[in-house]
Amino acid sequence: MPQVKDWALFGWQGITLDVPLDWEIRRFHGTRSKGYARLEDGDDVRLEMRWDKSKGRGPSFTDLTDRHISGMMKKDKVDVERHTGLAKPEGKEVETYTVRPPETSLPPSYQMISRCPECSRIVMIRIPYQRGENIKAIVRRIFSSLQDHSYDGADVWSVYGLRFAVPDTVELDDALLYPGSIEFSFLKGHDRIELGRLAFGSVILERQTLEEWFEVFSKKRFKRMTYEARPQEIRGHQGLIAHGRLKRFGAMLLRFARRQRFHCDLWHCPVSDKLYYYAVLAGSRNHDNFVAHSARVICHPT
């Protein structure tokens, strides 16, 4: 893969990178403060990323990388070649190097460790490649594009062509990829954001209206809610907005204690032919901020 025509933005847990279009996430775990993500191109693992927070007044970045590299050389008996100037993401302390394992069966890899003085985040990226493959230019672009924190209080998430931003105070609860749909849910305490993209817009709307479909969909998805829905254009697309609250008697106490309100935007984007929903159940402290981020779901390229 020496030449890459199409690039995409990959965004996960507040970290964004430019990656070749066909590199997509296959494995992940962890939280915003510490975790792991793996991108594959269908055949092979293409990129692995780990992130963590540096703790208080830890070692200097040079000490940190020296210790990591020497530990790796000792433990795995690998050959490490340090680079100067392979990539320098803006405003970060960075070390880039190539790791060559002694066994020819294991792939060599380009690796980068970065630490952000602003957010104290440590990000480690590993890009394996086949022996003889020249991917230096690709690696340079990926490493240089690293952003590890939000600038406006919102984390950009971007996978499988779905791009959105949610407040950087929420934690990922679940992410599901299912044929035709991709869905995320985030939590902050008891407040929740759920959003998704369903890839059968016109197929669904052949037989029913958006309101009819939402009624069936919400019975399963938002079964604890009672709401009123009204049609409304959302970003120039046919859509509806639902407002409501938790419905059951048992939830009344919670309702009064937490004062949670339900809001859902649903729209059909004819350009991408997909249905999008963005739902919030939140108390007054977070409600408006969460709802405002609905505008950060990108349904089609502008």
Partner: peptide, 20 residues
């Protein structure tokens, strides 16, 4: 067929379908 029917990217279809 899934790509064509639901206007999905090939990669998304493959990953989601194999999982499904």
């Amino acid at each position: 067929r899934l790509c064509k029917r639901y206007n999905l990217s090939h990669r998304e279809s493959e990953v989601s379908l194999t999982q499904y």
